[in-house]
Design a protein around this nucleic acid. Sequence first.
DNA 1: CCTATCATGTAATCCGTTACATGATTAT
DNA 2: ATAATCATGTAACGGATTACATGATAGG
Lengths: 169, 169
Amino acid sequence: MIELTQTSYTVLGLVSLTTDGATPYDLKQMVAISVGNFWSVPHSQLYAEPDRLAAAGYLSVTREKGGRRRKHYKLTSKGRKALDEWVHSPTEGSIELRDPGILKLFFGADPATLAAGQIEHHRRRLNEYEATRKFADELPSPGPRLALEAGIGHEREYVRFWSKLAKKG
Amino acid sequence: MIELTQTSYTVLGLVSLTTDGATPYDLKQMVAISVGNFWSVPHSQLYAEPDRLAAAGYLSVTREKGGRRRKHYKLTSKGRKALDEWVHSPTEGSIELRDPGILKLFFGADPATLAAGQIEHHRRRLNEYEATRKFADELPSPGPRLALEAGIGHEREYVRFWSKLAKKG
DNA sequence: CCTATCATGTAATCCGTTACATGATTAT
DNA sequence: ATAATCATGTAACGGATTACATGATAGG
């Protein structure tokens, strides 16, 4: 019995999007173009976590015999069940800002100076999001597009917030 | 040489607000009424982290001789310097949403159902923030108030976002 | 007095981050 | 060929979370 973390569900969720399984490298690619924008996962985790999940019966593994001997992971019924339950369960996690910029602001950083950097950061993020918008609009499932909208709203809010501070200085 | 984490700076920052040092329990209390809303720290960390910082010379320790033998931590000049540099340095940290609700949304959760819970969560947060507003307005330093405003803006944005989704269902 | 909660700490576990490392492809 | 980059992993370390544990204080 292992504890499933958000990373676990991210992996399960990504694997569930494939038809014939995924290798850690596949997962890495998928993260990069999907959840990576708002929920990054270092690639080493994408090797470690599937093994954890496989050991606990949530994924099955097949290893290539020759060549790269890559590991291919697929959802087991147990894995699919866990994923479904997670998706449909009420969300527990306490969402905190945990924004280092806000922490600095709290402890006395000069608002105007800090704001300049933060605005740029959020603007860049915003651009990245909007660049993938067309792509997301084409997808059959609405989830990614809705998540993207959340991200855009989020970045816009922070651009607003820091812009207010920048002006005051 | 240790690596200073955000938790390290939180501790240094809190200690810096005191005149005659702080015990871990003091820190716990301070977190609860200050940064805890948007950057919580479990109390066990408030015992471990000051020791780490003291061992590395950022804090000094004095232990009570009798009774509870509490440890009192104060900033050393090294600690104050590190804190100042951090506060005034440009902010590196990549701020990601890392919102479990958005992750679920991405992976197919029913928007309307999910939204209901999320709205409540963010509303509660919002109320907590606004309750401390008067308190923050009285403080001499502007940081806490500005951080609070960020939090309020953040929660409002998410209430907006999830409310939109709730309606569509 | 007794018990509930506050106050204060320690221990164990583990995920996540950061390097390190090396076999395949591709480009020049 | 050789360098560069992609692909694919492993190792080590440490911070963070989660329990566990116990001495004070106050309330009844």
